[in-house]
Every structure is written in C-alpha cells, then in structure tokens.
Simulated scan of single mutants.
Amino acid sequence: MSTPRTSIPVLDLSTARNPDGSFNTTFIDALRIAAHEVGFFQVTNYGSASGQVAELLDTVAGFFKLPLEQRLELDNRSSAQFRGYTRLGTEITRGRADSREQIDFGPNREPLDDVPADRLYRHLQGHNQWPDGYPELERAAEAWAHLMSGVGAELLAGISVALGLPEDYFAEPFAGTPAWMAKLVHYVGGQVPAAGTQGVGSHADYGFVTLLLQDAVGGLEVQPHGREDWIAVAPIPGALVVNLGEMLEVATNGYLMATVHRVTAPPPGVDRYSVPFFWSPRLDAVIDPVTLPAALAAEAPGVSQDPDNPMLSSYGANVLKGWVRAHPETARLHYPELIA
C-alpha cells in the first residue's frame, strides 16, 4: 500500500518528447501515475512567453479594479452562453454562493438559431463580452487561450499514450470547433456573508483537461478519490495546475478520476486572481468508453456515483447541466425549461 500523498506531482512539459518527436517514456510513466493516483499535477516549462504570466495576471487585476457599473456592462445574465461578467457572490457551487467574481469566455462564434429541444446545449455557441474601454484584457486573454489550447492538446495526447492508446485517440472530438472555455477570476474574502470561507465549493470539472494559472496567494485544495483529507496545492510561480474532468472519468471507467477540488476564500483585504482554462471538445461530442490494457482496466474502480451530479457522456449536455446549476439567474432567463 503506497503512502498517501501530501502534495501533488510536478511535471516538466519540456521533457515530454524525445528529439524524434515521440513521447518520452519516463515522462509518460510520471504522467500516468499523476493522472491515475491523484488526478492533479503541476506543469512547468509549457511555452509561455517571457513576462506573459505576470502581464496576464496584472491585466486581469486591472479589470476587477474598474467601477462596478463598467463591469456590469458585460453582465452574463444577458448571455445564453453564460459569457461575460458574473457578479460577486452570484455563482453557486453545491447550493452555496462563491466568494468570487469573474469573466467567462470561449471560442467567439456565431450563435445557432435553429436548435432542437433535445440539444439545447447548442445554444452555448456564441459571442464573448469584453470591455470596450479596456482592450488589453481581450488581447491578453485570447493570447492565453491560444497557448492553452496547444498545451491542452499536448497533454491529452500524452494521456492517450499513457493509457496505451495512439496519441491522437481523442483528437476527433476536438476537430473543427472545440468548445474550450476559460475564466478570469477574482476571489475576495469577507464580502459574501452567505459564502463564509468558500471561494468556490467542492466540485469536479466537466470536460477533459483543466489548466489553471494561479497567483501566489493560494487556497486551492484537492481531495483524491477515496480520501477524506484535502491536499493544498502550493503555488509555483508561473506553473499550471492540471486536473482531469468528467469526460475522461467516463471514458476510462474511473481509471482517470475527475478529482474533487475547492478554493478557500482569501482573508478580508486580500485579492486572489486565477485563470482556469478548460480544454474541451465540440459541444456535440459523445465520448465512448475506452478499451484499456488489462493491467489498467483492473485498476479502474468505475465512474463516481453522485445522484446529485450524474456524469453524462455527451459533453454539451454535461456542461449545460453544470452551468444551469452554477448560474441560476442566467439559466432562468435563457433555459427556463431546464430550471423546471
């Protein structure tokens, strides 16, 4: 029986491939252990430009210092795609308000008008909302999303190889119109009485691979499957925190877990900024079970059973279910049939 971890692994992405382009077996073995045993790890040397991380976090902080009336010009209640600005304390996790405000954005595409009633998730394709008087925010965020799309695809290729599959095994669901999404998040403490110390409550992510840039404040904690204690994720300057989503848990029958995590709000007067990016497939992607090598299949415990949060093999349905729950005011305006 291995000793329970008290920290999460750190991987150097610059060592992922050999000079001939093939994946390095040492890196793949470390990736498999991190993905299977914890479902969380940190990644360094992933290709960010010099100064890009600091500039992005400074630009995000600058937006949340704008007057509230300017931020509310991007109110996500106006968006059927749940894009734009979410007011402090109005996003809900596990039935409780979170101590954060944020901007959500994704691929900027034309909304779809003719959407069947059984595929309401197709309404999630649409436009972003950015502040007219602060163009540097859109530039920095879109540049980051472009970088993260490449990192997400590379890590998913490595995970495929770690599962004994071709590295392009999961490429098809992402082809053409991947529905990645990202957030620019500001955590504050002491301003949302209903939240208590909850920055964001315990939850798992909807998609495939999450790439989180966090500042130096800390507060992120993870709970590996089968454990009652929580592991603090100590910030490493410039590193990405990586975790796996529900699509990979469903696909691998639980060999890879969508690990539960949470954020504790910072103390009053302290600001915490983070930029999570969710590398996710097309909205219409349906993920079939993977045939794992026998040795790995023997270690797959099955998909987590939470009657309050069933996991769905349809990515679009899975993410819409989560957003309706997290943003009830926006959902009531644009998806009243799902609220009922």
Rank of each mutant, 00 (worst) to 15 (best):
253 N>C: 10
100 R>T: 08
130 W>R: 04
1 M>Y: 05
16 A>M: 15
306 D>S: 10
136 E>N: 09
266 P>C: 09
48 S>G: 10
133 G>F: 00
311 M>T: 10
335 Y>C: 09
264 T>K: 02
79 S>D: 12
162 A>D: 03
261 H>R: 01
200 V>A: 10
24 N>L: 02
223 Q>P: 08
221 E>Y: 01
123 H>C: 14
18 N>S: 13
38 V>D: 00
77 R>F: 06
13 L>M: 15
73 E>Y: 00
93 T>V: 14
101 E>T: 08
284 D>V: 09
174 F>C: 04
288 D>C: 10
14 S>E: 07
339 I>W: 04
88 L>K: 11
258 A>K: 00
224 P>S: 12
154 E>L: 15
280 S>T: 14
179 A>C: 12
230 W>S: 07
319 V>Y: 03
251 A>W: 01
246 E>C: 13
256 L>R: 00
55 E>C: 10
283 L>H: 04
287 I>N: 02
174 F>L: 03
340 A>V: 13
132 D>A: 15
247 M>G: 04
5 R>P: 14
142 E>I: 15
58 D>S: 14
303 V>L: 03
159 I>V: 15
121 Y>L: 01
302 G>P: 11
309 N>Q: 04
73 E>R: 15
4 P>F: 00
163 L>P: 02
224 P>W: 01
52 Q>A: 15
248 L>W: 05
308 D>E: 13
118 D>P: 11
302 G>N: 03
60 V>S: 04
207 G>K: 03
140 A>D: 02
35 A>M: 02
291 T>C: 06
242 V>M: 09
54 A>Y: 05
266 P>F: 01
187 Y>C: 11
291 T>E: 15
325 R>Q: 13
288 D>Q: 15
239 A>K: 00
311 M>E: 07
329 E>W: 03
113 D>N: 11
96 R>I: 12
135 P>R: 02
54 A>H: 14
122 R>S: 12
97 A>W: 07
165 L>M: 10
224 P>M: 00
16 A>Q: 10
198 Q>S: 01
103 I>F: 02
188 V>F: 07
270 V>D: 03
194 A>R: 03
299 E>R: 11
124 L>N: 09
168 D>F: 06
20 D>R: 04
97 A>I: 05
210 T>N: 05
15 T>Q: 15
318 N>D: 00
16 A>C: 14
146 H>C: 11
95 G>N: 07
335 Y>V: 03
274 S>L: 02
144 W>N: 11
260 V>A: 10
29 D>F: 01
319 V>D: 00
58 D>R: 06
4 P>W: 01
313 S>C: 12
323 W>V: 10
136 E>S: 14
191 Q>S: 14
112 L>S: 11
201 G>W: 02
266 P>V: 10
104 D>Q: 05
307 P>W: 03
45 N>R: 01
47 G>P: 09
318 N>L: 10
17 R>H: 08
320 L>G: 04
126 G>L: 08
255 Y>D: 04
51 G>C: 02
61 A>G: 14
237 P>G: 00
112 L>N: 09
79 S>R: 12
305 Q>F: 06
271 D>P: 08
254 G>F: 07
81 Q>Y: 06
201 G>F: 01
204 A>L: 09
337 E>W: 07
93 T>F: 03
172 E>G: 11
129 Q>K: 08
97 A>N: 11
48 S>R: 13
202 S>F: 06
337 E>R: 06
32 R>D: 10
5 R>T: 08
158 G>S: 14
182 A>M: 14
134 Y>T: 02
289 P>S: 13
247 M>K: 05
323 W>E: 12
124 L>E: 04
